[in-house]
Write a protein that binds this DNA or RNA. Structure first.
Lengths: 74, 74
DNA sequence: GGTTTAACGAAGCTAAACTTCGGGTTGTAA
DNA sequence: TTACAACCCGAAGTTTAGCTTCGTTAAACC
C-alpha cells in the first residue's frame, strides 16, 4: 500500500483544510460563504466525499484561490 | 461580461478536451477507460456538467496526468 | 456513398453530495 | 471545573447533479 494511493478525495480534503486555515477561516465561516453546512465542509476536509463542481467553484471564490491550487499536493 | 467569468465546468471541459486530444484518444476510448458513456464524456467536455470526484480521479489515471493539470487554464 | 467522430436535446434514473440529528474530543480561558 | 469554540464522527434521510438512454444532426475523412 503506497502512500500515493491515497484517494483524491482525501488529498483534496487535506489540502482544503490547509488553505482554509492559512486564510484564517473556520469551517463555519467557510460554510457560510460557500452556502453549505459546517458538517458538509467537515466531510469534504475529512475526505468522506468531494464537493460538486458547482460547490468547488464557490469554494475557490470564497478562498480567493485558483482551483488549480486546491489540487497541489505533496 | 469578462471572459474570465466562464464557469469552472466550461473551463475544465475545454481543458479536458485538449489533454485527451493530445493523448490521441477519442471520446469513446476515454469513456471506456473511465467507465462512463461517450455522451457523458461529451457533456463534461462541453461544460454541461462536471465529473464526480470519483470519476475525476479515474479520468486523471486514464489520461496519466495529475489532477492539477486539468485545472491549468489560460 | 459509407464510416468515424462528436455536437446536441430531452427525459428519466441513481449515485453521491448534502442535510439533519445526535454525541464525543481537544484546547483554552475564565 | 465549567464553559465555550472548533472540530471530529456516525447514522439515517433528502435532494440534486451527475449519469444514462433514447434519438437527431453534422462535419471530416476514406
Amino acid at each position: 500500500m503506497t502512500p500515493e494511493s491515497t484517494s483524491l478525495k482525501k488529498q483534496f480534503g487535506k489540502r482544503l483544510q490547509q488553505v482554509r486555515s492559512s486564510r484564517g477561516l473556520t469551517q463555519e465561516e467557510l460554510a457560510e460563504k460557500v452556502g453549505l453546512t459546517i458538517e458538509s465542509i467537515s466531510n469534504i476536509e475529512r475526505g468522506i466525499h468531494g464537493p460538486s463542481f458547482d460547490n468547488l467553484e464557490k469554494i475557490t471564490t470564497a478562498l480567493n484561490v485558483p482551483a488549480k491550487s486546491l489540487f497541489e499536493f505533496e
